[in-house]
Simulated scan of single mutants.
Amino acid sequence: MVDETPFRPREKLIEKQRLFQSIQNSTHLKGPMDKITSVAIPLALAGSSIFLIVRGIYNMSHGIGKKA
């Protein structure tokens, strides 16, 4: 049997485990960049989709943007 070298040293792994276990936030918001992917991007997508829906309803109700 050949022992593989770990991806990270054991000390760093234990340090990261302590950090993540001590944080009181939700599991998906524990990393420093996770707030961008879990909060900002969905809010931006929701905001832009609501804007496009409202614009489409306005255009339909006023007859703007018809093709022919």
Rank of each mutant, 00 (worst) to 15 (best):
L52Y: 04
G63R: 02
L43S: 06
E15D: 13
M60Q: 13
I41F: 11
T5N: 09
I14T: 13
Q24W: 15
P32I: 15
S61Q: 09
R55S: 08
F51Q: 05
M1W: 07
N59T: 01
N25L: 05
R8K: 12
E15L: 05
Q21K: 13
T37M: 07
L13Q: 06
A68E: 15
S49F: 14
N59F: 06
I57Q: 06
L45F: 10
V54R: 02
L19G: 00
L19H: 12
R10I: 08
V39L: 15
S38Q: 15
L52F: 08
T5C: 04
V39K: 04
M60F: 13
V2P: 09
Q21H: 10
T27K: 11
Q24S: 12
L52W: 03
R55A: 10
T37H: 12
I41W: 08
V2N: 14
L13N: 01
R10E: 13
E11S: 07
A44V: 06
S38G: 13
I57T: 04
L43K: 08
K16L: 15
G31P: 00
E15M: 03
G56H: 10
R10C: 00
R55V: 00
K35Y: 14
I41C: 01
A44I: 10
F51T: 05
A40E: 11
H62G: 03
I36W: 07
R55Q: 15
G63P: 02
V2F: 10
I23N: 09
S26Q: 07
E11H: 03
N59C: 11
I41R: 02
H62N: 11
P32S: 13
T27Y: 10
S48Q: 08
N25P: 01
L29A: 07
L45Q: 06
F20M: 04
A46H: 04
R10L: 08
Y58K: 07
F7P: 01
R55D: 05
G31C: 13
L13F: 05
I57K: 11
P9F: 09
N59I: 01
N59L: 05
F51R: 05
S26F: 12
V54K: 00
K67E: 14
H28M: 11
T37V: 07
F20C: 03
D3I: 14
F51S: 08
